[in-house]
Design a protein around this nucleic acid. Structure first.
Lengths: 255, 255
DNA sequence: TGTCAAGAAAGTGTCGACACTATTGCGTTC
DNA sequence: GAACGCAATAGTGTCGACACTTTCTTGACA
């Protein structure tokens, strides 16, 4: 990891002499968000051991809030904790990614079915409006916007299912695959089908066609998996290649 | 909360004189397990504010491991965190319980389907053996054993699905509803159907009848929901009514 | 008697320190 | 030259302290 500045130079250097104590009371929260970002962007590399002292120094805080953040991230599956050895970045292998997408597919299909069974017509209308409001400019948006809109669409379905647990689940899953999705969206490999399937899903919702909608969703997600696998490989390559000096070959020779 | 002993007198009193420093290096872990138990057994009551100092004193540790445990529990939905006011016990309303069971049903059905599609015959055989090994004495077991065996059965299905994420999800859900399930098992209101449906589920697995098995699972779980709702009400009643004789005076006397 | 404000008390958020554990590097022995 | 063990180093786990915030108490005032 490169230990440059993480905070944008604004709020941790007590430049002004008098207010220097700067009790923010949310170091943990900020550490959590920042570390999660580092993880999700592969700034902290898979399998890497996380050095609390170094992170704390970089953030300009003590180890306490760092550890609180890491504990939360451990519960959420981003990192793992080995006693007396510390926290490690949990790698998201291609395999693990598929498992996550499968879970996502399961949750979303269930949410869709429940929505069909339970939602009022005007709620379905909300879904239609949400999508129709963004469908036009969809492809011209920057990747971040597309990602947010896409997540919003699926989260709205979860919301209309009437089961808040589903929203939580989906949000947690999204957080774990967001970076990959963004890379994949940047590739723009399948925009067309994406737009089309969202529209089709809305249609199915209006028709209260649970089975049909679930089939669409499953296809929709499965379709992205393969594209995403490629994206993950690219991302990992980018992460591991810069030090071109091949670790693997060297190691293998050594053995 | 009654501030008697939480650890079962075994492993925190340094009874043997010389090793008194007792560097265990797992205070956090133990605190996590113990607090979770307190939560799950309603020893810490819904909506109640969690006093870190008091917990720390009771456990005989500092606040640090307590806070680490609480942060993890916050990620898992057991408690919530309000800045500068601390951690609060998240209440599990009847409604929330239904949502959780619904989620459980979703995960389990999906796991069953995947198992039918992917598991080798000898893995299915493992499931059959697991169940046949416990089915005989099932009803005579104490509630804890029944609960563990039941959870084991469903977790095994998740395992045979081949998707580790499903195992994690199910384990997390189980942890949140365990206490209620135990109460409900103690009521022994539906043992018969329980045993029968597990056997039927095994049969469906052997026949690779995904749809049939899922239907059974859904019924199986839905059936427990209503029984469980009653159990929850009883539990909440038990939690809220005894205090009649004000806790505060009692606590003060105890100190 | 009820309301409100000031002070006291209780409680959280973060820090720096230190004990303990794992890892690394070095010198010794074969 | 390689394996081994020991010392030095780096890093984690926990603690007690203290600044700040919230909550409770008390007493003045209407």
């Amino acid at each position: 990891m490169n230990e440059q500045s993480f905070f944008t130079a604004t709020d941790d250097a007590p430049t002004d002499g008098d207010t220097e104590t700067r009790r923010s009371a949310d170091s943990s929260e900020r550490a959590y968000n920042t570390i999660r970002k580092l993880l999700v962007e592969f700034k902290l590399k898979p399998e890497e051991r996380i050095n609390e002292v170094q992170l704390a120094k970089t953030f300009g805080v003590s180890r306490t809030p760092i550890r609180e953040a890491l504990n939360r991230l451990a519960s959420e599956g981003f990192v793992s904790l080995t006693p007396n050895r510390g926290f490690f970045v949990r790698s998201l292998s291609t395999e693990g990614l598929i498992d996550l997408y499968e879970l996502r597919s399961i949750i979303e299909c269930a949410a869709f079915r429940l929505m069909c069974e339970r939602a009022e017509d005007d709620q379905i209308e909300r879904l239609r409006l949400y999508w129709s409001a963004i469908v036009d400019g969809y492809r011209e948006q920057p990747a971040d916007t597309i990602l947010a809109e896409d997540e919003g669409f699926h989260l709205l379905i979860a919301e209309l299912s009437g089961n808040p647990e589903l929203i939580n689940q989906l949000a947690a899953i999204n957080a774990r695959i967001r970076f990959i999705r963004r890379i994949q969206i940047e590739h723009r490999s399948h925009d067309l089908s994406q737009v089309a399937s969202h529209s089709a899903i809305v249609d199915a919702a209006i028709a209260r066609d649970a089975e049909g909608g679930m089939r669409l969703l499953r296809q929709h997600i499965e379709l992205t998996v393969s594209a995403t696998q490629q994206a993950l490989k690219d991302a990992l390559l980018k992460v591991y290649s810069p030090p071109v000096a091949d670790t693997k070959r060297a190691r293998r020779r050594a053995v």
